Amino acid sequence: TFELKGKVGKVVKIAEDHYLVEVEGDKWIAYSDEKLSLGDRVMVVDVDGLKLKAKRIP
């Protein structure tokens, strides 16, 4: 999973306390310091076990 750092994905679902992000065809649980919206493009900035930390990108 460490190779996911720096990869770009898309928010495909918003849950109460996390997001579901699709990166290279796989879906991952993600969290972010900022509020994300459905369809936002994100970059993986860190990997915490099986969770990704994501940041919105333009």
Rank of each mutant, 00 (worst) to 15 (best):
T1P: 15
T1E: 15
T1H: 15
T1I: 15
T1Q: 15
F2P: 15
F2H: 15
F2L: 15
F2T: 15
F2M: 15
F2V: 15
E3S: 02
E3L: 03
E3M: 02
E3R: 01
E3C: 08
E3A: 02
L4E: 15
L4I: 14
L4V: 15
L4G: 15
L4D: 15
L4M: 14
K5D: 15
K5P: 15
K5V: 15
K5E: 15
K5S: 14
K5A: 14
K5L: 15
K5T: 15
G6K: 00
G6H: 02
G6W: 03
G6Q: 01
G6V: 01
G6C: 10
K7F: 02
K7S: 07
K7R: 04
K7H: 04
K7L: 06
K7T: 03
K7E: 09
K7W: 02
K7D: 06
V8F: 07
V8K: 08
V8P: 04
V8D: 13
V8S: 11
V8Y: 07
V8H: 10
V8T: 14
G9Q: 00
G9E: 00
G9M: 06
K10F: 09
K10L: 12
K10M: 10
K10P: 06
V11M: 03
V11I: 05
V11Q: 00
V11N: 00
V11P: 00
V11F: 00
V11L: 05
V11E: 00
V12L: 13
V12D: 05
V12P: 00
V12G: 03
V12Q: 05
V12C: 08
V12F: 08
K13G: 08
K13I: 08
K13S: 12
K13A: 10
K13P: 00
K13Y: 10
I14C: 11
I14D: 10
I14T: 10
I14G: 04
I14P: 02
I14R: 08
A15K: 13
A15I: 14
A15L: 12
A15G: 08
E16A: 09
E16F: 11
E16W: 11
E16Y: 12
E16N: 13
D17W: 09
D17G: 11
D17R: 10
D17A: 11
D17L: 09
H18Y: 09
H18F: 11
H18W: 11
Y19E: 01
Y19N: 03
Y19F: 07
Y19L: 05
Y19H: 03
Y19Q: 03
L20V: 09
L20E: 07
V21Y: 00
V21K: 00
V21S: 00
V21I: 14
V21A: 04
V21N: 00
V21G: 00
V21C: 05
E22T: 10
E22S: 07
E22D: 09
E22F: 13
E22I: 14
E22H: 09
E22R: 06
E22K: 07
E22G: 03
V23A: 03
V23W: 01
V23L: 13
V23I: 14
V23N: 02
V23D: 02
V23T: 03
V23Y: 01
E24C: 15
E24Q: 05
E24S: 06
E24M: 07
E24G: 05
G25P: 03
G25A: 06
G25Y: 06
G25W: 06
G25Q: 07
D26Q: 12
D26T: 14
D26M: 14
D26I: 13
D26H: 13
D26A: 12
D26P: 05
K27I: 10
K27H: 07
K27W: 11
K27V: 10
K27Y: 08
K27M: 08
W28N: 02
W28V: 02
W28H: 06
W28D: 01
W28Y: 14
W28R: 02
W28C: 02
W28M: 02
W28Q: 02
I29H: 14
I29N: 11
I29S: 13
I29E: 13
I29L: 12
A30S: 13
A30C: 05
A30K: 00
A30Y: 01
A30P: 00
A30H: 01
A30I: 04
A30M: 15
A30R: 00
A30E: 01
Y31S: 13
Y31M: 13
Y31L: 14
Y31G: 11
Y31N: 14
Y31C: 14
Y31E: 12
Y31P: 01
S32T: 05
S32W: 02
S32C: 14
S32F: 03
S32N: 05
S32V: 14
D33I: 08
D33L: 08
D33C: 09
D33W: 07
D33A: 07
D33R: 05
D33G: 07
D33F: 06
E34S: 06
E34V: 04
E34I: 04
E34Q: 07
E34Y: 04
E34T: 06
E34A: 05
E34K: 04
E34P: 03
E34W: 04
K35H: 09
K35E: 12
L36E: 00
L36P: 02
L36Q: 01
L36R: 00
L36V: 07
L36S: 01
L36Y: 03
L36H: 02
S37C: 13
S37M: 11
S37E: 12
S37N: 12
S37I: 12
S37W: 13
L38R: 08
L38W: 10
L38N: 07
L38T: 08
L38G: 05
L38C: 12
L38M: 11
G39Q: 11
G39V: 04
G39Y: 11
G39W: 10
G39K: 09
G39R: 09
G39N: 12
G39E: 10
G39P: 01
D40G: 05
D40L: 04
D40N: 07
D40Y: 04
R41E: 14
R41F: 14
R41T: 13
R41I: 11
R41M: 12
R41H: 14
R41D: 14
R41G: 13
V42H: 00
V42M: 10
V42F: 14
V42P: 00
V42T: 03
V42I: 15
V42Q: 00
V42Y: 01
V42N: 00
V42A: 05
V42G: 00
V42L: 06
M43R: 03
M43Q: 10
M43H: 03
M43G: 04
M43A: 05
M43E: 15
V44T: 02
V44C: 03
V44I: 15
V44G: 01
V45R: 01
V45H: 03
V45M: 06
V45S: 04
V45I: 08
V45E: 11
V45K: 02
D46Q: 03
D46P: 02
D46G: 05
D46L: 03
D46S: 04
D46F: 02
D46M: 03
V47D: 04
V47C: 08
V47E: 04
V47K: 05
V47H: 09
D48I: 14
D48G: 01
D48Y: 08
D48V: 14
D48T: 09
D48P: 01
G49L: 07
G49C: 06
G49A: 07
G49T: 05
G49P: 04
G49Q: 08
L50H: 12
L50C: 14
L50I: 09
L50F: 14
L50K: 08
L50T: 10
K51N: 08
K51G: 04
K51A: 10
K51Y: 04
K51C: 11
L52E: 01
L52V: 13
L52W: 01
L52R: 01
L52C: 03
K53W: 05
K53D: 03
K53L: 04
K53F: 07
K53S: 03
K53E: 04
K53M: 04
A54V: 15
A54D: 01
A54G: 06
A54S: 05
A54Q: 01
A54H: 01
A54I: 15
K55G: 09
K55N: 06
K55F: 02
K55H: 03
K55W: 02
K55C: 10
K55T: 05
R56I: 07
R56T: 06
R56K: 11
R56V: 08
I57N: 06
I57Q: 08
I57L: 12
I57R: 03
I57F: 07
P58G: 09
P58C: 14
P58Q: 08
P58W: 07
P58A: 09
P58R: 05
